[in-house]
Write a protein that binds this DNA or RNA. Sequence first.
DNA 1: AACTCAATGACAGTTCTGTGACACCGCCTC
DNA 2: GAGGCGGTGTCACAGAACTGTCATTGAGTT
Lengths: 226, 226
Amino acid sequence: MAPTLLIVEDDPALAELLVWSFEAEGYKVLQTPDGEEALLIAAETPPDAIILDWMIEQLSGIEVCRRLRRHPELASVPIIMLTARGEEEDRIRGLETGADDYVTKPFSPRELIARLAAVMRRTRPALAGQTMRFEDLELDPVAHRVRRDGKEIALGPTEFRLLQHFMERPGRVLSRGQLVTGVWGHDSDIEERTVDVQVKRLRAAINSTGGRDMIRTVRSAGYSLG
Amino acid sequence: MAPTLLIVEDDPALAELLVWSFEAEGYKVLQTPDGEEALLIAAETPPDAIILDWMIEQLSGIEVCRRLRRHPELASVPIIMLTARGEEEDRIRGLETGADDYVTKPFSPRELIARLAAVMRRTRPALAGQTMRFEDLELDPVAHRVRRDGKEIALGPTEFRLLQHFMERPGRVLSRGQLVTGVWGHDSDIEERTVDVQVKRLRAAINSTGGRDMIRTVRSAGYSLG
DNA sequence: AACTCAATGACAGTTCTGTGACACCGCCTC
DNA sequence: GAGGCGGTGTCACAGAACTGTCATTGAGTT
C-alpha cells in the first residue's frame, strides 16, 4: 500500500533527483516531463499526490492543475507546485487553481519531502496512517480498526474501504458510480445497486451500537457521511 | 452535467483547435461558423457559455451579441469575444454590447480556457461546487444540502434542481418554458403547469420554517427568486 | 361581471431504495 | 477432499418517496 506519487518535471536532472529521493522514502513514483501525459497517467492510475513543476512543456502547470481539479476522480488529489523564485503572481494563481502547497526553487529534497508529508497529513489522513474522526466515529487505517463511541466495530474488507472512502470526504455526496470506481476500482464491472447492499451492511455494522445513522441517503444522487 | 459551450468561429483551423481544446477540458461543444445559425442553435439548446469571434460571416459578432442579449432565455449566458489585436474600438463596443470578456488574437487555447473558467466561476457557481447564498437561503451543491436561516431543509430531487436553477439566477424571472428545459431537460415533454406544482412544493418546503415567501410569482410571465 | 392565470388538494403511476435470500468463492480445518 | 465459514455480488420484491396531471378553487385584471 505504498502511496503513489506522480512527478511532472521536465528538467531531467531534477526529475531524477526527485524520483530517487521519493523512492528512498518509500513512495511508488511515476514520472513524466509532459503535462498532457501527466493527465493521462493521472486518469489511468490516480496517484495519491502530485508534484508539479510550474514551467513545463506542452501545458503549463497551472493548466494541468486546473484540468486535474475538474476531473471528479482527481479533484481531491493533493498537488504541490514547484515555482521559480519570485513568481509571486503565479504562486497566487496556483493556489487559486487548487494547488495545495508550493515550493520555491532551489529547494532541498528534504524540504519537499517534508512539505509533501504535511500536505498528505492534511488531505489524506488515511495515507499518513492518521486515524480519521467524524463525530464519534474513528477509523484507524494502520490498525484497520473502527470504533464508534469508543466501542470497537468489526467490518469486512469492503465495508472498511467504503467507510474509509466516506471518511476521506465527509459530507460530500458520492454517486453510486463514484463509489464503485473509488471503492472497487476503475475497472470493476460491479452492479451499481451492489453499492446499496454494502451501504446497508456498513450501516448495520456502524449503527449496531446505537446512535443515529451516520450515512445519509440522497435520493437519486447517492450517499454521504453525516 | 458537463457544461455546454457554443463556439462561433469561421476560420476552420482555429475552430477545430478550439473544439478540440474544450472537449479535452470536458466541455460539451457545439460549433458553427455562421452567426445566424449560432442564434438558432443557442435558442434551441441554450449553452452555458459562448465563444464568439468578432469577425464572422453573415452577421458581425457585435450583432450576434446584441441579439443574444435581447433573447430573454439567453440574456445571461456569458459571452467571450475573440478580437484581432488593436481593434480597441471594437473591444469597447463589445463590452458595451454585453460581452463578458474578450481575448485578443493571437492567443493560446490555454489562455482562453482560463478566461472561460474565470467567467464561469463568476456566473455559474454551482459548476464550481461553491455554496450559493441568497438572503438567508444556502444551497450546497456538493453536499446536496439546503438551509434556511441555518436550519436544514429536506427537498426532493426535482425541488432541489429547481431551487438550484433559481439560485443560479437570483432575481431573474424565469418562464415556465425556461424552467421546464432548464430543470427537466431539453427533451422532456412535461406539462408547463407541472412547474406550478413543483414551485408550490418548493415553496412549502422552503417556507416551512417561517419567514417570507422567497419565490415571487410574476403573473403571465413566470417565477423568480426573491 | 367576465375572464385569465395561479394555487391547491387529491390521486394514480413511477422511480428509487431497503432488505432478505441465495449462490458462489477463497480459505482454513479436519 | 469434504465441510464449515466469513465475505460478496445479484436478484426480486415490498415499501417509501417522489412526480405529473387534473379538477377545482381562488386571486388578480379589465
